[in-house]
Design a protein around this nucleic acid. Sequence first.
DNA 1: TTGTATGCGTTATCAA
DNA 2: TTGATAACGCATACAA
Lengths: 342, 342
Amino acid sequence: MAESFSNPTLADVARHAGVSTATVSRTLNLPDHVNPLTRERVTTAIRELGYTPNYSARALASNRSNTIGAVIPTIDNAIFARGIQAFQEELSESGVTLLIASTGYQPDQEEEQIRNLVARGVDGLMLIGTHRHESIYAYLKDRRIPYVLTWCVDGMGHPYVGFDNRLAAQSLARRVIALGHQRIGMIAGISKYNDRSADRIVGVRDAMSEAGLDRNDLILTERHYTLTAGGQALEEITKFHPDVTAVICGNDVLAAGAILTARQLGIGVPERLSITGFDDIELASAVNPALTTIHVPHRRMGQFAAQKLLALRDDPTSRIESMEMETDLIERQSLGPPRAGF
Amino acid sequence: MAESFSNPTLADVARHAGVSTATVSRTLNLPDHVNPLTRERVTTAIRELGYTPNYSARALASNRSNTIGAVIPTIDNAIFARGIQAFQEELSESGVTLLIASTGYQPDQEEEQIRNLVARGVDGLMLIGTHRHESIYAYLKDRRIPYVLTWCVDGMGHPYVGFDNRLAAQSLARRVIALGHQRIGMIAGISKYNDRSADRIVGVRDAMSEAGLDRNDLILTERHYTLTAGGQALEEITKFHPDVTAVICGNDVLAAGAILTARQLGIGVPERLSITGFDDIELASAVNPALTTIHVPHRRMGQFAAQKLLALRDDPTSRIESMEMETDLIERQSLGPPRAGF
DNA sequence: TTGTATGCGTTATCAA
DNA sequence: TTGATAACGCATACAA
């Protein structure tokens, strides 16, 4: 009962079952290559001893860790949380465990964490966004570590499972402009070191240019992704740029913050001011008025990213085929035409 | 440049530096036990070869993985996300990587994931809540795997870093009752397999008993932690129990959903109906009216849990001293006295 | 189908 | 302070 001070090993099981360690290993990894009767003996021995394989030894011997890493800015953000959760669930079904590391949006931290996970022998890596030092990509290529970029698309040939932030933002802004808005504000995420946020800004500007507006007329402010930051930004914009009739937000959290604050300030949405979001998290439809936003299939993205990585693990000669997910413009009540008289 | 097909090993470094593998290992792990000059030779060799230690081998040889596991219901929940993020940051500072697994609130899944992480050689485990099969605790004890329970306290002697859900909920309910509310509703989380949710319900009932009310008069409904579920539950309660004047919610997400829906239904909060939350996430103060709720120090809880586990890793003879975090009743505008005339 | 023997990359013990 | 060398627990090529 309590006499064993260390875990039973393969050898213990082998002895107990009266077979060799190789046979035990086989019944674990290649069950059909072993006689049903001996297999039975081995499995009972495993059960009786409460044997659990030592993954470190397994990883060392097989050069495979059954572990996949994810390096993300932060877990504490609804958008990443959802995608990562789906990613993890998908991995789990294949017996792969997720190693997770966060960077706080700091590039040097990202590089360190990537090296860390590689040293830990991950079989693959999920990265977020496309913008990082070329040396990191070279490092990964040298070590033959499969990776997939997410939450973005990529033009440099790196495999990705994601969506085009620029195009999505552009399509939303296009709709805003089509409704007649001319003075447009934007509350974006911090774009430094964040290509997703930067791309969304460019998308909005592109829509302006396309419509004959001056892309430099965009009233832009960048904030961290919090409700209060969104609210403060909205207050500023309405104060210093009262002629703005529509505020495009870099994500739903900023937009929800903006809406809540607008109501508190007595600013009618969308009569006086239209507000839009990005991501379509649950909050987007719960807030009042509900947010017009871009729907992003976060969960599916996480699932597919996992599948690609798993496929590559099972057949290292294959290549990851990049995959661009569709995003949809979801029209709700927070966006309307600008009203004359205001 | 591109000629090496596999990572350099300790032996490569040793050869390159003209020393033994033992010396290389020492300069890595016990730098002061090695001559500064040879240390210099070794470190340059490491740099020149781009050597990174193989963690699997290290784990196998040293019987330490520098890895700590967390088994949580889901990452996709603001409350867990925050605590886990803090937990991960704290581990990261000590060079420990977080292995993460989720259970979807299913007890059998939890057991499987725990065994999985143990097999992977985690040096410690963060678990959420206290209610699980005794055999799991026995398993952990047998293997001498340190663990710490979080988001709860425990009366069975298991180490924890958390808070008393029952007492916190009781203090909030006490305040609700003190304001004069007699007919009380509760929108709780699903309490099956979730001791935190169950404890909060008990806390509310205790406050009722304490005040001379019948604890069975609580109008209780249990929901998943989503905004829409909170909204639907509120609609039900107001419809079938119009005499209820205060609705206590199991967490802020449910409460926020209830508030948003109440406004849409034209139900004045708190004039006609008081609504309270639990957790004090950002949403709690952003919603209108702002939520009266229980503040829980999620980040600090995550940090301390990590510290306890790390301490135990560095000194396996020590014991984890359990730690009960304080929670605070935060009074905002969503709770008021019941108004006569309604 | 099964067993033998070797190697995976470190750490750690023991001598020198 | 350094170097041989034996574990660590498993997978796998090869032989039987």
